[in-house]
Design a protein around this nucleic acid. Structure first.
Length: 429
RNA sequence: GGAGGAAUACCCAAGUCCGGUUGAAGGGAUCGGUCUUGAAAACCGAGAGGUCGCGCAAGCGGCGCAGGGGUUCGAAUCCCUUUUCCUCCGCCA
């Protein structure tokens, strides 16, 4: 959500930004919002004047009662009743217009960074840089679900019976590998100076509406029956919610945390759940980075954060690239965002394993996350990025480590977390 | 789950029984000074408080005492409700 003052003073810039995001249908909102804002301020003035009169008159009544001038007091009471009647109408109109203003403001997108490439949708995202050689072996690499099955490591059939499509059992070495990547990611980020945190896996509705749009909520979030609780879709939700309504001391910034959580997603909409693989599922686990900092430091943190993910995957011998989100593909709350994509030697293309975003002060303004400064309080910048999400990332690790004989090399960094195993071998059926 | 108690500003805290000079006391922290090589401590002094509106500005005003509603001419104070925390009891890995 933008600052209404900013919109008032920068109508053209806001419209320009909407055009860059190819959301021309939202252009009229800018003028509507400015007009509503003017009306609301006018009503506020009128109301304030009346309330002032009410306050002083009420005080006078108190004095009159003390002096036993009952009749004079009763006359003044009458005047206050009149004022209150007028106020009822004014306040009603003011709150109606404020509602309208808020709902329109919510859909006006955040100002994107000047560096964001202009494009309509995800087909126009821009590759920024490749890290590591995207190799193609001279033998065939099977589909990742088949690799898992050769290790007796995946059972989607049973999960279908217990929980339905989109769930899975990870078993044996595959389950251990999954857990190892998360544990390694945790330690990797702790070594980068991030503070490890395990947040609540369920959050209340007021936190949900603070951190995501209504459409996202419908398509992603599982609700607990008869409770005001939702399963988190990512630990970012509870991590940002942690700071809701908080006033943070400047000296405590930046706050850099790495959080672990299971993530639950309905995945309603465009892609849906795949039948066999682990690429898109209802439940996964993720090690995340979340940073709260001063707005002027946000871009530095953004660049540091995505590069950590790149470094992480390179330490697992997985080639990656960064893909910058173009204006049209950027979610409305984001200022700038890029995906980190891992190399799939089987498909011979890159696929998304993480996403790094800076939201500027958009999320902070919605949730009231501020810091105290000498010149008053200021909204903070919030950023988030994936370290690793598993089992999706297992696809890259299994494919990149797959050897001709069907075994899979364990990257050096993961070996301590696998009890020293250097390679895992398929089970004989 | 049951029974009590509590929530006041950056932090601590008075006021709530009994509604009205409360314009939310008083501290701490903050800032300035004395002392000191420097710091700490102690002492002296200062004016600001969160948020919104109007105004070029000095300033004026509204809201604000956990959130929401109500009673009243008037609510931190009375009533209802939600949330959180504390104490005790019960249950539980």
């Amino acid at each position: 959500m933008l600052d209404i003052k900013f919109v008032r003073e920068n109508k053209d810039k806001v419209k320009e930004n909407i055009k860059k995001k190819f959301q021309d249908e939202k252009l009229p909102l800018v003028d509507e919002v400015v007009e509503l804002d003017a009306k609301i301020r006018d009503l506020k003035q009128k109301g304030d004047t009346l309330r002032q009169e009410r306050n002083t008159t009420s005080d006078e009544i108190g004095v009159l009662f003390r002096e036993k001038k009952i009749e004079e007091a009763n006359e003044k009471k009458q005047r206050v009743v009149e004022i209150n009647n007028q106020l009822i109408d004014i306040e009603k109109e003011e709150s109606e217009l404020s509602e309208q203003l808020k709902s329109k403001m919510m859909v006006i997108p955040q100002m994107i960074d000047d560096s964001v490439p202009i494009g309509k949708d995800d087909t126009e995202n821009v590759e920024i840089e490749r890290f590591g050689e995207p190799f193609v072996p001279d033998y065939e690499i099977p589909y990742h679900a088949d690799i898992c099955e050769s290790f007796n490591g995946l059972d989607k059939e049973s999960a279908g019976r217990t929980s339905g499509n989109g769930f899975y059992y990870l078993i044996g070495d595959i389950a251990r590998l999954h857990e190892a990547t998360i544990a390694y990611a945790r330690d990797f980020m702790i070594n980068k100076g991030f503070t490890y945190c395990i947040p609540p896996f369920m959050i209340r509705s007021d936190v949900v509406t603070g951190v995501m749009s209504f459409a996202e909520m419908e398509n992603m979030m599982y609700k607990i029956e008869n409770e005001d609780l939702y399963l988190i879709g990512t630990s970012e939700h509870s991590m940002i919610g942690k700071f809701k309504g908080q006033l943070i001391n400047e000296k405590d910034l930046p706050i850099a945390m790495t959080s672990y959580s299971p993530c639950f997603r309905k995945e309603v909409g465009a892609h849906g759940i795949e039948e066999r693989g682990l690429y898109r599922v209802h439940q996964f686990e993720k090690q995340e980075m979340v940073v709260l900092c001063k707005p002027e430091d946000a871009m530095d943190w953004y660049n540091k954060m995505w590069s950590y993910t790149v470094e992480f995957f390179r330490s697992l011998d997985v080639p990656v690239r960064t893909l910058e989100c173009c204006s049209g593909d950027l979610a409305d709350l984001k200022v700038k965002s890029c995906d980190v994509e891992a190399w799939s030697p089987r498909q011979q293309k890159y696929f998304e394993v993480g996403s790094c975003s800076t939201l500027g002060d958009a999320q902070a303004r919605r949730l009231g996350i501020r810091m105290k400064t000498e010149n008053g309080n200021q909204f903070l910048a919030t950023l988030n990025n994936t370290v690793i999400a598993s089992p999706r990332s297992l696809i890259a690790i299994l494919e990149c480590g797959y050897q001709k004989d069907g075994s899979v090399k364990i990257p050096k960094a993961l070996q301590p977390y696998m009890g020293g195993l250097e390679v895992i071998k398929p089970k004989q059926k």
